[in-house]
Write a protein that binds this DNA or RNA. Structure first.
Lengths: 336, 336
DNA sequence: CTGTTAGCGCGTTCAA
DNA sequence: TTGAACGCGCTAACAG
């Protein structure tokens, strides 16, 4: 292990001088010495010890990113954006995965705090669970008390910098757009009963229908992932429904629902129209192309990191608008 | 920022005692003191400073993972496995993304070295570029000289612990399986000319055909990603071909090719059969279901981390067999 | 069982 | 411009 002292000795200069040339300190160093130090560092293969620097400077170069599931394209896109942003700030990302367990989420914040991460970004919907929410808030408080910055992608529930997708409004807009295609009776694959993102989207959709004087949708709950969509769709078909259009509250669920319908011989969009939410990249090659509400996922990740790193007091909330994208999975119904 | 000293003072014990109770030291501490320290730590919201621990212990708790693109399900699956493994060892993962730039790959190894990562895992095919390979090897050498462990997922080119998928053999097996379905004339969407993984798969496929006395496939090069597959497929169709089956050297390429064929009115598998490689999870809802060679991606990530962390001298190479999975994208041809 | 103390590698005053 | 020295928070001898 080559230390700065080794370099200094090899170059015949003091530790302080070596430090100054090897770390963009604002201090000036004579050209000759500078060259000697740099050549010594290169020759010895010196790599500054970031942990020691963190200790000495009192500030690390790591950003913590907490997501629920890396294999979900929604989170992968957000994490990708976050990594790009961190890179811009010359920081590294330590990535933690909760597997949708709030307990792990809290533990990860503690770990990232121990890591002395400069900022922590938490992506993923909160559960409507007061106890967990309080505990998470407490953990975030001790983190912030020690100077950490926090950004959330999701609901503005924690009094931190927040990137908040307008789930309610997006789903509402979607309802209007689908009604514009002639649909009148809907079903919603609504995800878990306690997940805010799912709730907001389902309720926004219902609100949109109500505004138009249309009947409330049939609601089927289930998991928030691909299999949840599949299961909920099967359940819906089993129940029987007169809906002409199904709204799954996210794209991976919609994809699962599409498969379920295909397996049950229900043609999409011929016999049933289908829409999702997010416009995750994985949708790109789905057939029929999926109607959805587009969210700029990578940009949301980037924005959250930038927000947290530039945070200086007042928590800021950035609302993100979703854009309805009508594609082949929704059929235009003849006027009846 | 609450330090161990604060806790010690608050509990009325020495620094050493506080350290002993708060960090699974093997040393014994009296029950009374232990309780006092723990209560003080909780009350003050103490979180051990991992960077200071790293410095004092001479060993960090971070594992570095270098991948090319987080939004590619292949890498997402590997990273997911790596994170799970790290978690098992009570370590965190700092994740770096190269965007397929070898220059960034080298820079990331340096960064991870600075981070004093205990191990670095590099996933993704090497390029047949001697200069870059040498420079990467050099950077890895300085990392290893300071005690770092390295594991590679891909070709065994660097003299490190390696998880090596049997690309050649898998593609060869695939060729046999496809021939078994009656196909005789093939095209290969072969990816970039200089990428080992792509080369191995293309050459393995050709070798398999040769063994059977079948004609060499038409080869179209292109990008290793979804758009590369799309473009290459368009190119193939434009050229005109009498092949009845196309092998794309990975799944995302195959997915792109599938879309291209659909856009050009070429029915799969009716007019053209199609196969990929990896069995990435994103294939799950593709229609027709895709024939491919399954690789246990998450397990490869886990294995690589375990290998690196348990490494004790001799580099070990774990070969990973791929399993041919025949699905609907390949048609059985009548015997002619 | 508990406390004292010397570093771990580096940044940064403060003097020269 | 350069160098000496202290401290960042913690671990690990060593001593009691």
């Amino acid at each position: 292990m080559v230390t700065l002292e080794d370099v200094a000795r090899h170059a015949g200069v003091s530790l302080a001088t070596a430090s100054r040339v090897l770390n963009g300190s604002s201090r000036q160093v004579g050209a000759a010495m500078r060259a000697r130090v740099e050549s010594s560092a290169a020759k010895l293969g010196y790599r500054a010890d970031a942990t020691a620097q963190t200790l000495a400077r009192g500030a690390s170069n790591v950003v913590g990113v907490v997501i629920q599931d890396l294999t979900d394209p929604y989170f992968a896109a957000i994490a990708d954006g976050a990594i790009r942003a961190a890179d811009t700030h010359n920081m590294v990302v330590t990535l933690g995965t909760t597997y949708r367990d709030p307990e792990r989420e809290i533990a990860l914040v503690a770990t990232l705090n121990a890591q002395r991460a400069r900022a922590v970004l938490i992506a993923g919907s909160r559960l409507a669970d007061e106890v967990m929410l309080r505990r998470l808030r407490a953990e975030l408080d001790v983190y912030r008390a020690s100077g950490g910055r926090v950004a959330i992608i999701g609901q503005d529930l924690l009094g931190t910098d927040t990137v908040a997708p307008l789930n309610h409004e997006g789903a509402r807009d979607l309802a209007h757009a689908l009604a514009g295609r002639g649909h009148r009776r809907f079903a919603v694959l609504a995800g878990p009963p306690g997940l805010y993102t799912a709730l907001d989207r389902a309720s926004g959709f219902a609100a949109g229908l109500a505004e138009l004087g249309l009947p409330a949708p049939v609601v089927v709950h289930g998991g928030f992932d691909r299999d949840g969509g599949h299961t909920a769709a099967v359940e819906l078909l089993r129940m029987g429904t007169d809906a002409t259009c199904v709204f799954a509250v996210n794209d991976v669920m919609a994809t699962g629902a599409l498969s379920a319908m295909r397996e049950h011989g229900v043609d999409v969009p011929g016999a049933m129209s289908l829409a999702g939410f997010d416009d995750a990249a994985s949708l790109r090659d789905v057939v029929p192309s999926m109607t959805t509400v587009r969210l700029p996922l990578a940009r949301m990740g980037t924005l959250a990191v930038d927000l947290a790193l530039s945070s200086d007091g007042q928590p800021r909330v950035e609302h993100i608008e979703g854009e309805v994208v009508l594609r082949d999975s929704v059929r235009t119904l003849p006027v009846s």
